[in-house]
Design a protein around this nucleic acid. Structure first.
Lengths: 122, 122
DNA sequence: TATTCTGGTTACCGCTGGGTAACTACAAAT
DNA sequence: ATTTGTAGTTACCCAGCGGTAACCAGAATA
């Protein structure tokens, strides 16, 4: 999941890509946004990702200081996730990616209506 | 390599992540920058990536309109790659990722000097 | 004649990313 | 007594990612 060659690079940019350069992390960060979200919510908002991978990604995001994890000692358990200052500072970058894509993307095939393509995170 | 569920999504942001959300593409785009670069150059500048994967990534970047491929009918062959308008428009986003990382990254372990970690693309 | 140079492509194969299902703890509700 | 709900974790397993090595054309150089 995490590529050691990237994380151990002397190059700051390479390490940055090692941190957020995969398909799930930008999606997760974008979904959380400025909210506080529980694990189960993330799991149902992003159905394409399995619980296992979700847990891995969240753990890595926390290790990299993008995410804060608040676990309440209750039963059934309750855990809330919210972006740290670093994570919040990444949101504008995601916004500029959205703008960039809207401006330059060639139109996706029109009339696409099957369920799989309905999923939306942005 | 390319995740069909991302590309087929109705969500523009998800499609964008499907386009550039992997570890090699931002690196390649950053290395090319405003230059015109040949295949062999890319291959030697980024030794961690194999020829096969490099070729795949370049092809996808071209398909997604980020890259222009100029093949000269010579022997031995010469092929040059340069960023399209769309690709160039992505460079500022990479710059902001660099700034973001410099500002918030926890210091990597000091005194790291083995060769693997020497590789730099940024 | 043989080697080099370039930008790939292809066959082969091992490793692992990631999916599924089962399982945990314990309180509260039925 | 049994079911439900939450946040994970673990074992198991398979498709496919990605690495390696071989191979291609054909001109130029030694």
């Amino acid at each position: 999941m995490r590529d050691e060659r990237f994380c151990a690079s002397n190059c700051s940019f390479t390490r940055a890509i090692g941190t957020i350069g995969n398909k799930w992390k930008p999606i997760i960060i974008n979904v959380i946004g400025t909210r506080t979200v529980r694990f189960g919510q993330l799991d149902s908002i992003i159905p394409l990702i399995s619980r296992k991978v979700m847990a891995e990604q969240l753990k890595e995001l926390e290790e990299d200081g993008l995410l804060e994890r608040l676990a309440y000692k209750e039963l059934p358990p309750r855990v809330e996730y919210k972006l740290s200052e670093k994570g919040l500072a990444f949101l504008p970058i995601l916004e500029s990616i959205k703008e960039w894509n809207c401006k330059y993307e060639v139109a996706p095939m029109p009339g696409e209506t099957d369920k799989k393509s309905r999923v939306t995170y942005g």
